[in-house]
Amino acid sequence: MQGSTYIDFDKANSKGLKLIRSSENASFGLLIIVGINLGLRISDLLKLTYKHLRSDELEIIEQKTKKRRKLIINDNIKNALKYFEEYNDEFYAFRSQKNTVYSIQHVNRLMKKHFKGSNISSHSLRKTFGRRVWNNNNQSEKALMYLSELFGHHSISTTRKYLGIRQEELNNIYINL
């Protein structure tokens, strides 16, 4: 599965916090942090309000699959939200300087600007989440099973390809000869 690639989780988290703290682009910084911690598609991320993010958990119906998902708001997101306390709960969380919700195209332009690389896009945030889960669970089949379910994939092999794991394993065959 070609397309976007993942970003190192810690690098993405640091970039998000830097954008928030410097006020260079706080809303986009929050989008990065929320994206890598929830693993949602960009179409679902852009619909989140501050009220969603200020709760301990949220429930959404995914736009693409129409499936209901329950998500936990973790400490990474809660810590980033401390910089947004003055914003109304009903406001969409990810808005441009013109106060309109980001378009997917604009998010992709910002991703390319802040994360150098040819295959970086809004989808990289979801893949970064997946890679973090996989690595935090010792790159186990169990982690791939969970991710396969979270991502709505039909098989673990699809999840492997999606995360670029399969290609890495194939490349290692040549490297380790």
Rank of each mutant, 00 (worst) to 15 (best):
S118V: 15
I60N: 04
F115D: 10
K70Y: 12
N76C: 02
K66T: 01
K113W: 11
Y102F: 15
R54Q: 09
Q105P: 12
I60A: 10
Q97H: 04
S96Y: 04
R109F: 13
Y87I: 03
K112H: 14
K112R: 15
E86P: 02
N76V: 06
F115Q: 12
L71Y: 04
K64Y: 06
T65Y: 10
S121W: 02
R68F: 06
K70H: 07
S96D: 13
E59D: 05
K67A: 12
H106F: 12
L110C: 15
E90L: 04
I73S: 01
N74F: 00
Q97G: 03
Y83T: 07
K66F: 09
Q63C: 03
H114Y: 15
Y83H: 11
V101G: 13
K116Y: 15
M111H: 06
S103I: 01
V101F: 09
F84P: 06
I120W: 06
E59M: 05
E59G: 09
Q105V: 14
N108G: 10
N79P: 01
E57W: 01
T65L: 09
R54Y: 10
H123F: 12
R109S: 14
Y83F: 13
R54S: 12
Y92W: 04
R95P: 13
I61R: 13
I72G: 00
V101P: 11
I60Q: 11
D89R: 11
K67Q: 09
R54N: 14
I72E: 03
K112E: 15
R68L: 11
H52V: 10
E62Q: 14
A80T: 00
Y102Q: 11
K98Y: 08
N108T: 08
I77M: 01
D56M: 02
Q97D: 03
I73K: 00
L110H: 08
L81K: 00
S96I: 07
K67D: 02
E86W: 00
K112T: 12
E86Y: 03
I73C: 03
F91R: 14
I61W: 09
A93H: 03
K112L: 13
D75T: 07
E90I: 15
I77H: 07
L53N: 07
T100P: 05
K98R: 06
K82Y: 05
R109E: 13
S96Q: 00
K113G: 13
I72Y: 01
N99K: 14
Q63I: 12
K64L: 06
A93L: 08
N108C: 14
L53C: 14
E85L: 05
L110A: 08
E62T: 06
T65I: 03
T49A: 13
L53P: 06
I120C: 10
Q105A: 14
K113H: 15
V101D: 09
I77R: 02
I73E: 00
K82I: 05
N99S: 07
R68N: 13
A93I: 00
K112M: 14
H114L: 11
Y102T: 04
K67P: 08
E62K: 10
A80S: 11
L81G: 07
K51F: 15
